[in-house]
Design a protein around this nucleic acid. Sequence first.
DNA 1: CGCCTATCCTTTTTT
DNA 2: AGGATAGGCG
Length: 735
Amino acid sequence: MSDLLAQLNPQQVAAVTLPPQHALILAGAGSGKTRVLTTRIAWLISTGQASPHAVLAVTFTNKAAKEMLTRLSAMLPLQFGAARGLWVGTFHGLCNRMLRLHHREAALPAAFPILDMADQLSAIKRLLKNLGVDDEKFPPRELAYFINAHKEQGIRAAQAEGYDDYTQRRIELYAEYEAQCQREGVADFAELLLRCYELLSRNEPLRRHYQARFCHILVDEFQDTNALQYRWLKLLAGVDVPAPGASLFAVGDDDQSIYAFRGAEVGNMRAFEREFRVENVIRLEQNYRSFGNILDAANALIQHNQARLGKNLWTDAGAGEPIRVFAGFSDLDEAHYVVDEARALIREGTPPRQIALLYRSNAQSRVLEHQLFTAGVPYRVHGGLRFFDRQEVKHALAYLRLIVNPDDDTAFVRVVNFPARGIGSRSFEALQGAAHRANSSLYNAAAGLPGKAGVAVGNFIRLIEALRAETQGVSLPEVIEHLIERSGLRAHYLGEKEGRERLENLDELVSAATRFLQEEDDTLVNPAEGDALSAFLAHASLEAGEHQAGEGQDAVQLMTVHAAKGLEFDAVFITGLEQGLFPHENSELERDGLEEERRLMYVAITRARQRLYLTHAQTRLLHGQTRYCLPSRFIEELPEALLQPVGHAAAPATYGNPYASGASAGRQESAGGAERAAPEAPGGFRIGQNVHHAKFGAGVIVSAEGHGADARVQVNFGKQGMKWLALAYAKLTAV
DNA sequence: CGCCTATCCTTTTTT
DNA sequence: AGGATAGGCG
């Protein structure tokens, strides 16, 4: 047990061995956060202070949960090896589990399906159609966002407030949506949390049961919790009714809060300190990941933020290399440099997988991918379509859902005519009308449907019935295998020219089911709850499936900065460091948007172990238009002593118009292809021209519109942001 | 019913 | 530009 602590520094030991009271661990990037969390659990259990049964550990991603379990099973002595009874999972996973255990009390069917985002969207579309609501006026996507945002605040339609007609109407639709979900016995992601919260808050015996059981609650990435998640934790920890021993151990880093845009509230950390009367705040500031220069840069950058709890990373690893800064003439030029440099690193012995190319938005990956592909460098792009989101997989799962629960309208709609079986929009509308009138599920209404539609739909119903009968008592992978054949899915994709990959994915789904059963068998997470079918369906909804092509391959890693959180690499390139891109221009519209962007940059910088590159381009093709860009203010916020300009030998500190000088134009040609004249802007100005404004200072003309007296130009003023100026009024001078 | 074109919309994303 | 999706036409 003492060897658990042997390799920890004093702060880490202090955190791990805190008495069971509420505690806040401010864990900086690379300070061994996950390690502290897992060691804490292992320590509690192996010292006999807690039975595994009493531990609840919450993470944000399945990946993190899995990682924690893996590390735990390595740490715990054999007698705890199985760690049975330990609850480790995501907020959604844990809520799902409670809801299934107490589905009756939660007013849900035993095998309630979980709607993922796509399902939710189609459920909303169906609702709007049924109600005859104009989906132009109420875009389903926007409505979904509205509903989810309310649920994440813990607000039901009945409690929602709206002060204008439009909001009022949306609240009515929210209520209708709630009713539809309840009728169909389904729950979307946000519903899992809200329903579970309501279950615990309304059902006192149940609440007391869990409060008494979970004496130790541990939360990872606490800065990413939203309002509802925080309230859920409060309820479970029983802050208002302190049960003896119940303690909340929260680990987080306010400087790495990058999910405010989807409802995360950093303020929860302060609220936690206050409302839980936290006496133990421990800072983990020693960084084991990066060299000094990288940390100095990160520290200097984040100090520009006002709202911080305060923390400073340090290392005893030495300064290391300077941070390389590269200015490209164009995005292509930038990509060229990045790929050349990556190749050089690989040649010198850096494993490709230890090189990360980061960017602010996904659209930026294209140029990089192209260069990598041309250069023949293996690479892997993270993000993108997830396994369980693929249409062929969703189709197969929809059949599975119908076997489990025929009243699942979402699943019904998806496959009633897929593969095509003669049920067109006509027949379907007839069915929908019948179901609406009878206030029943589509499946139920199908029985009495007259005419040609009735025959076709009847055939479909018989197919599902047959499937259910034939798969009675058959193992899960075999059920799936059988349904792929019987439904005609395989035949359909066999006949499709792009169908081969889809067929492979269907086979992979069978393997996924097999793996699921195996894991469930010896896992710590899921002691048999309900039947395998619905458990697998929940798994498919909650776990997107990180199965991606080329996973095992040693390749350069491409991803957004968001996706890079929690990872580390020997060499990191932060690309597209330009005003308007990173920080993103849309962040100006958001409250504290710039500070969140800066935290994002902080996350990006702290991913690097040895070498860090910051690159930007003067010209970038965006939305099919050339944009003229100034270097990101985040570069200027770093101490110059840490930076080393590289590339194009004499890259100037302040960047001129690439079209203005002959030398640049020549390079432009070689990098970007055909030479073009700079596009005209009205009033004698040119796009890309450097200008000066009395109030905003130096800027670059980015685009223009209108003629004569109406002429306006868009100017990028760097720190001052992007402005539209009417040439007739603005006092612009050419520089 | 299915294929084709027109139109829309592009920050980040997990569950 | 580019891709995804929706609606219209054959």
